[in-house]
Computed example of a mutant assay.
Amino acid sequence: MNPTTDATTTAGAARPIRRAVVTGGAGFLGSHLCTELRRREVEVVCLDNFLTGSAANIEHLVGDPGFRLVQCDVTDYVHVPGDVDLVLHFASPASPIDYLKLPIHTLKVGSIGTHHALGLAKDKGARFVLASTSEVYGDPQVHPQPESYWGHVNPVGPRGVYDEAKRFAEALTVAYRAEHGVDTAIVRIFNTFGPRMRPFDGRAIPTFIRQALAGEPLTVAGDGAQTRSVCYVSDLVRGILALAGSGHGGPMNIGNPHELSVLQIARDVIAATGSSSGLEFVERPVDDPMVRRPDTTLATEVLGWTPEVPWTQGLERTVEWFREGAGLPQAGVRAR
């Protein structure tokens, strides 16, 4: 592949994207972005403090001359020598178990970290993409959630540290676009799953897979009627990079508009793992949203993007990765 002709390009920009910075690049989503950018022969600078990221997620890129890893915290001063065409700001604790344990750092990376990442984009004249979240909609009173919905968020609840960090980050991103002319975009990411998820990060799908492979009961919050829309990671990455290359400012929902109940997800995990596990119903967390489904009309109209990997196929791939890569016990799993 010729990087001069095939590198990702930004509409209206003076140059193609040949060099990108990914903050939080050793995390679940960040590492998949790094991998895909290198596949497209974009040079990548990965910034991560490994607070929630993992070196194992990017070990396949180490030694690649087009990949550079810098261990740093974006809440400190951020400096990247040389030209930068794209800044993807994905640094942040993102699972409840992390941001409940690290509330102040979560707020700092959403505010100070976003400020530093935007400053880097401004200094380099780079395109900037903020990884926001469906959590800005809170426990929504509008369903499905379009980008025009302002949300229903409890700022002083336990999830507020993450929700409000991302809402502030969106406001700061818009301010940099208006005041400094930085070429910014905001992507609101809905539930995503796939290889490299941490088995103990507290999210439903990796938790269910870990429990099923260990032959343990799957802990379903409430009665399991609450819904989620889950997108396989390769579809999400494709959508994010399409937004990065579009010149659109967002905010833009990227996620799977197909809705599943948490109970259905648990039952599908049991089937996909061949586990003999049962279900255990536990108390729902405070401010746990009852519904979550993106209106992806904007992404389809502007980017031509729709998810392609079916839920069952993505689940099979994820289960296989957990079997092979996560080193989990597998007692109680039936022969298949």
Rank of each mutant, 00 (worst) to 15 (best):
V187Q: 06
G138N: 08
Q330M: 08
M252F: 02
P3M: 08
P257M: 03
V22F: 10
P65F: 08
A13I: 05
V233N: 02
V44C: 03
V45N: 10
A214W: 07
E43T: 13
S54G: 01
R159Q: 03
I189P: 02
E170F: 06
A272L: 05
E179K: 08
I254P: 01
A11H: 12
G151I: 06
G63K: 07
L298Q: 14
Q330Y: 00
P195M: 10
W150F: 12
D235F: 08
L279A: 06
D73V: 06
D287K: 02
D48Y: 02
G138R: 11
A11T: 14
G138F: 12
P251E: 14
V237L: 09
R210N: 13
D295S: 10
F28W: 09
W305V: 00
A204F: 15
G125E: 05
T133Q: 02
V84T: 09
P285T: 01
V153R: 13
I58H: 01
H60E: 12
P206V: 01
P93Y: 07
P93G: 04
V182I: 06
P65M: 04
I265T: 12
S277V: 10
G160E: 06
H116R: 15
W311R: 03
G82Y: 07
F208R: 01
G113M: 08
R127W: 14
S31C: 07
E147K: 07
R292L: 14
S95A: 15
S246N: 04
P3H: 05
G138M: 08
T312E: 13
L102I: 01
E41G: 02
G113Y: 11
P285F: 04
R210K: 15
R196Y: 09
V319T: 09
G245A: 12
F208E: 02
R19A: 11
V153P: 03
